[in-house]
Deep mutational scan, measured.
Amino acid sequence: HMTFVALYDYVASGETDLSFKKGERLQIVNNTEGDWWLAHSLTTGRTGYISSNYVAPSD
């Protein structure tokens, strides 16, 4: 899985979204569905959809 880092804080707007904080590391589970990616937070252990605009590759 690809690992990304959050560029900004994000508060989930629905049950399927994932809230995260700036600097949080996220593993991308599925990024084939446009701008919203299914991600797993390595910080909180939660999984949900994130906006690809809010993250950048961590490598």
Rank of each mutant, 00 (worst) to 15 (best):
Y54F: 13
L26R: 00
Y10I: 06
S41C: 04
D9I: 04
T3E: 13
S41M: 01
S51R: 15
V29A: 06
S58M: 15
K21P: 01
L42I: 09
S41A: 02
Q27F: 14
Y49N: 04
E24Q: 02
V55R: 01
L26M: 08
L42T: 06
N53D: 13
K22L: 05
F4K: 02
T3D: 08
R25C: 14
S19D: 06
N31Q: 13
H1S: 13
K22I: 06
Q27Y: 14
D9L: 05
T32Q: 12
S41Q: 04
S41L: 03
S19I: 05
K22G: 02
N53W: 15
H40T: 15
E24R: 00
D59A: 15
A39N: 00
F4Y: 15
S13V: 15
A12I: 06
Y8E: 10
W36S: 08
T44D: 03
T3N: 08
F20Q: 00
A39T: 03
T3F: 14
S51L: 15
A6P: 01
E15D: 13
D35K: 09
Y49L: 09
P57A: 11
E33D: 14
S52H: 07
S13G: 08
R25N: 06
A56W: 09
F4R: 03
D9P: 02
V11P: 04
E33N: 14
D35W: 07
S51F: 14
Y49S: 03
V29M: 11
E33Y: 10
N30C: 13
G23T: 01
H40D: 02
V11T: 12
E33S: 12
S51Q: 15
K21H: 08
I28G: 03
G48P: 00
W37D: 00
H1F: 13
V55Q: 03
V29S: 06
N30A: 11
E15Q: 09
L18Y: 02
L18R: 01
H1E: 12
Q27T: 11
D17R: 12
N31S: 12
K21I: 08
A56M: 12
S41T: 02
L26P: 00
Y54G: 06
N31K: 14
P57G: 07
S41R: 01
P57Y: 10
N53E: 14
T32M: 12
E33Q: 13
T3W: 13
T43S: 11
T44W: 02
L7K: 05
N53F: 14
F4E: 01
E15C: 13
D9F: 05
W37V: 07
P57M: 11
G14S: 14
G14V: 14
Y54V: 08
H1Y: 14
T32C: 10
T43F: 05
L7E: 04
V29Y: 09
V55F: 10
D17H: 14
V11C: 11
M2I: 11
P57W: 10
R46K: 15
A6R: 00
G45A: 04
V5D: 04
I50Y: 00
V11K: 08
G14I: 11
I50M: 03
S19L: 06
A6W: 02
V11R: 06
T44F: 03
V11N: 10
H40E: 09
S19A: 06
L7S: 03
F4N: 00
K21W: 05
F20W: 02
R25W: 12
K22P: 01
L26C: 06
L7G: 03
Y54I: 07
K22Y: 04
G23S: 02
D9M: 06
A6N: 01
S51W: 14
V11H: 10
A39D: 00
Y54L: 14
Y49M: 10
T16C: 15
R46S: 07
A6D: 01
Q27H: 11
G23W: 04
G23P: 01
S51E: 07
Q27K: 11
E33G: 12
T44N: 04
I50P: 00
I50D: 00
A12Q: 05
M2T: 11
G45N: 06
T43P: 01
N30W: 09
L26S: 00
K21E: 08
A6C: 08
N30V: 10
W36I: 12
V11D: 12
T3S: 08
W36T: 10
G14Q: 13
D59E: 12
G23M: 03
V11I: 13
N30M: 10
M2L: 13
F20V: 07
I28Y: 02
M2H: 11
G45H: 09
Q27M: 14
Q27L: 15
L42M: 08
R46Y: 07
E15Y: 08
T47A: 05
P57V: 10
A6L: 04
D35V: 08
H40K: 15
P57Q: 09
T44R: 01
S19Q: 05
I28K: 07
S58F: 15
S13H: 11
L38C: 11
Q27I: 15
L42Q: 06
W37L: 08
P57L: 12
A56F: 09
E33M: 12
A39P: 00
S13K: 14
V55N: 03
E33P: 07
S52R: 14
R25I: 15
V5I: 13
S58C: 15
Q27W: 14
T43Q: 08
P57N: 07
D59C: 14
Y8C: 15
A6M: 04
S19M: 05
S52I: 10
T3L: 14
S41P: 00
G23Q: 01
G45M: 05
L38A: 01
S51T: 06
Y8A: 10
M2F: 10
P57F: 10
A6V: 13
V29P: 04
G48V: 02
T47Y: 11
W36N: 08
S52G: 08
T44Q: 05
E24K: 00
Q27N: 07
G34I: 06
L42Y: 05
T44G: 02
S13P: 07
Y49H: 05
S13D: 10
A39L: 03
A12L: 02
Y49E: 04
T16H: 14
D59G: 11
Y10L: 04
G14L: 12
S13N: 10
A56S: 10
M2P: 13
D59R: 09
F4P: 01
S19Y: 03
T3Q: 11
I50R: 00
W37A: 02
E24C: 02
V29C: 14
T43N: 08
H1D: 12
G23R: 01
T3P: 04
H1A: 11
K22M: 07
S51M: 14
A12F: 03
S58P: 09
I50S: 00
D35H: 10
Y8K: 07
I28M: 06
D59P: 13
H1K: 13
V29K: 06
E15S: 11
D9V: 03
W36Y: 12
G48A: 03
D59K: 10
S52F: 07
W36Q: 10
L38R: 02
L26T: 01
S51H: 15
H1W: 12
F20D: 00
A39H: 00
A12K: 04
N53Q: 14
V11W: 09
A12R: 04
D9E: 05
S41D: 02
Y8L: 10
G14F: 12
F20S: 00
H40Y: 14
I28C: 12
I28D: 00
V55S: 03
G45Y: 03
S51Y: 14
G23L: 02
Y8F: 13
D9G: 04
G34H: 08
Y8P: 00
S51C: 15
W37I: 07
S19K: 02
H1N: 13
L26Y: 00
D35L: 09
F4D: 00
D17E: 15
S51P: 15
H40W: 07
W36L: 13
K21M: 09
E24V: 01
T44I: 06
S41I: 02
S58L: 15
V29F: 10
F20C: 02
M2Y: 10
G45K: 05
T32N: 09
W37M: 06
A12N: 03
D17C: 15
K22N: 02
T16S: 13
S52Q: 08
A6G: 04
N31V: 11
G45L: 05
L42V: 07
S19C: 05
M2A: 10
V5M: 06
E33C: 14
R46P: 00
R46G: 06
R46H: 08
N31G: 14
S13Y: 09
A56N: 07
G14R: 15
K21N: 08
H40A: 07
D9C: 06
E24Y: 01
S52N: 06
P57R: 09
